[in-house]
Computed example of a mutant assay.
Amino acid sequence: MKDVIKMMESSMSPEAVRRAHIKAEQDIMAIRLAQLREEKNIKQSEMANFTQSSVSKIEKRKDMKISTLIDYLDSLGMGLEIITYPKVAVSKKQGKVLLKV
């Protein structure tokens, strides 16, 4: 599978590869949000402070406000930590916590 991805990336510009990685990460985040809720055995209709339809929209959304993400995770009894790090760094140990709620 990795060879196929590398082959596809070799025919793309570096900027197109970067955009594709960003889009993939956004899709993965939407899937992970639903997985987190399901792991807690919470139905969409049981989420505190959200209607079932709004939970469905959040879990399909590829881009959202950080405040919405914080509220969603809070309803699951979870927190959020955002860490910044230099993209050119060899190690992410150089990262700094930007937000922890």
Rank of each mutant, 00 (worst) to 15 (best):
V17W: 02
A24G: 11
Q35N: 11
A34K: 07
L99T: 00
Y72F: 07
E81F: 07
N49R: 06
E59S: 02
K6F: 15
A48K: 14
I31V: 13
L98Y: 04
K93N: 10
M78L: 14
K43Y: 13
I5L: 15
A20K: 04
D74A: 15
T84S: 14
A89I: 01
T68K: 01
S53P: 08
K92N: 09
L80S: 03
S91V: 08
K65S: 08
S10G: 05
K60M: 12
R61I: 04
M78V: 08
R32E: 10
N49D: 11
L76Y: 02
K6G: 07
K23A: 12
Q94H: 09
I70G: 01
Y72A: 01
N41K: 14
R61E: 13
G79T: 02
A24V: 08
S91C: 07
E46F: 11
P86V: 02
E81L: 10
G95P: 05
A24Q: 12
I83A: 10
V55N: 04
K96E: 04
L98H: 01
K57Y: 12
L76T: 00
A24H: 08
S54N: 11
R18L: 06
K40A: 10
Q44W: 05
G79L: 07
V55K: 00
I31T: 09
Q94P: 05
I28D: 13
S91N: 09
K100I: 03
I22E: 11
M8L: 15
L69K: 03
A20W: 06
M78N: 00
K60V: 08
M7T: 08
D3W: 06
S10P: 03
E59C: 03
P86T: 05
K96P: 07
Q44A: 15
E25S: 14
K62V: 02
K6M: 09
S53N: 06
F50W: 09
I22H: 13
G95K: 00
K6V: 08
V55L: 04
A30C: 05
L33P: 01
K93Y: 12
K57W: 10
K87Y: 09
F50R: 04
V101R: 06
L80C: 00
L80A: 04
K6S: 11
A30F: 06
R37I: 02
Q26R: 12
M64R: 00
V4S: 10
F50G: 02
